[in-house]
Every structure is written in structure tokens, then in C-alpha cells.
Simulated scan of single mutants.
Amino acid sequence: MGSVEKKQSVFGEKVSVMEGDSVTLNTNVSELREEDDILWHFGTDNSPLAEISREKQIFSIYDDVPDGRFRGRLKLDHQTGSLTITNITYEHAGIYKLEIIGVKWSSKTFSVSVYARLPVPNITSVCSSSSSGSSHCSLLCLVDNVSHATLSWYKGNSLLSSISVSDLSISLSLPLEVGYQDKNTYSCLINNPISNQTTHLDITQLCHTCSGKAVLILTFIY
């Protein structure tokens, strides 16, 4: 399941939503008055998205502007004026502006960020022996095609290492080397501001075949 996170700031309301989910931008009005007009705009050029004028009986959605990216995705609550964007994609990230024009004029800004659904991390292991004869288990945690995310190794609840990616959609990998007799519990986690995925493993299960020969083992995902 997806999630939506909303935070207030001096620049308006920051909204984080998962790609493919729906998000509602609320007017925080329980019911519009007869003299109230509602205007919704998107982007730096203030492209009109929706309009309500109860006095004139206007309840309009302009989902073909600015370039058709909102077509079939907008819902307007006629009672409150709140705007819902369904099946949201990266194209719908940006600034939304609400104007309420009535006895008093008020406005509100929403900054919407859209994040991809995260894959479950995949972990592989290779066993090797050092010149001293001791065996080690080299782990590699890997995720494909992620952006705005952080990949981390944990031992129990303690963070061991992490690597992050911002705008680019790339593959991330993070190595970890442990002794094959290590009995601690390890996990690899991928997270962004609104969601996370974790693969847990037990070194005694993953590296129990380490005896100096190189082997490749896929972990079980719990």
C-alpha cells in the first residue's frame, strides 16, 4: 500500500506521495458558502486546473491544460472545493495554488513531490579465504532503478553503512564483509521519505557453507 505525507512550512504545505497513488489537496473548508469562488492553479505559469462558483453554478475541471497531463486524473469536491489527483506520476509533481474568493480572499500553496515504489533489496554472498586461512563472507546488497533513495546496511538496529542517490534513476549496491561464524543479525534497507523495503538475513544461514570455496547464495526475503 502507498502512503501520503503532509507537512506545513512557511512556504505552504509540502505533500509527498507515492507514484500511482491518489492525493487530495484540502481547502480545510467544511462547506463552501454561496458567495465563495474556488480557483486551482498548477505550475509556475499558474495554469488553471479547476474552478467553483456556487452562485453561478460553475463546477469546472480543466484537465486538458497545460499539456493534457491531468486528463482523467482530477476530481473536485463540490462541497469543500478540495482537489484530488488520481494515479499520480512524476509529471504531476510541482506547485499547486488554491485561491478562495468570497467575503475574504485567501490563498494556499501546495508543493507536491512524487516518489517511486521501492523494490525489495536483493542480497548475494561470496565466500572466500584469506592467506591466514580464515574464511569470510562478502555480502552485496543491490537494488535496481531507484532515485531519491538511500540504501543501508544494519547490524541489529545499528547503522553500518549507507549510500544515497538523488535525481538519477540508477542501480545502487552496497558491500559488507563479515566472518562466516558471525552470529549477528543483519539487514539491508532501501528507503525514501515516505516508504521503505527491508531484506533480513542471518549470517549463520547465509554463510554456513563458507569453507574456502567461492559460492553464490541468494537470500530468503522474510
Rank of each mutant, 00 (worst) to 15 (best):
M1W: 11
S3G: 14
V4R: 09
V4E: 09
E5N: 03
E5G: 11
K6S: 09
F11S: 00
G12R: 06
V17R: 13
M18Q: 14
M18H: 14
D21F: 12
V23H: 10
V23E: 02
T24M: 12
S30T: 12
S30L: 15
L32E: 01
R33Y: 06
E34W: 04
L39K: 07
L39A: 04
W40M: 08
H41Y: 08
G43Y: 02
G43D: 05
D45M: 08
N46E: 10
P48Y: 00
I52R: 09
I52N: 02
E55Y: 02
K56Q: 04
Q57M: 07
I58M: 03
I61G: 06
Y62G: 10
D64I: 13
V65L: 14
G68N: 06
G68R: 14
R69F: 11
F70W: 03
R71K: 15
G72Y: 02
G72C: 06
G72S: 06
L74M: 12
K75M: 14
K75I: 13
D77V: 07
H78R: 15
H78P: 14
G81H: 05
G81V: 08
I85T: 00
T86D: 05
N87D: 01
T89D: 09
Y90W: 07
E91Y: 07
E91P: 12
H92F: 09
I95R: 04
I95Q: 05
I95Y: 01
K97W: 01
E99C: 06
I101N: 05
G102W: 03
S106A: 11
K108R: 07
T109G: 00
S111G: 01
S113K: 13
S113V: 08
V114T: 04
N122H: 09
T124E: 10
S125Q: 13
V126Q: 12
S131N: 11
S131P: 13
G133Q: 00
S134N: 12
C137G: 07
S138E: 02
C141V: 05
C141K: 08
V143E: 09
V143S: 03
V143I: 03
N145P: 04
V146K: 06
A149H: 02
L151W: 07
L151G: 00
S152N: 10
W153L: 01
Y154C: 02
Y154A: 01
S158L: 04
S158A: 05
L159S: 04
S162Q: 13
S164M: 06
S173K: 06
S173I: 08
L174R: 03
P175Y: 01
E177V: 09
Y180K: 12
D182N: 08
D182K: 08
N184K: 12
N184M: 13
T185S: 04
T185M: 07
Y186V: 00
S187F: 07
N191I: 11
S195K: 14
N196S: 14
N196G: 13
T198C: 05
T198K: 09
T198N: 04
T199D: 02
H200W: 05
H200P: 09
L201Y: 00
L201Q: 03
D202H: 11
T204W: 15
T204N: 11
T204G: 09
L206F: 10
C207A: 05
H208L: 15
C210T: 14
C210G: 14
K213C: 15
A214H: 12
V215T: 15
L216T: 14
L218C: 13
L218R: 12
T219G: 08
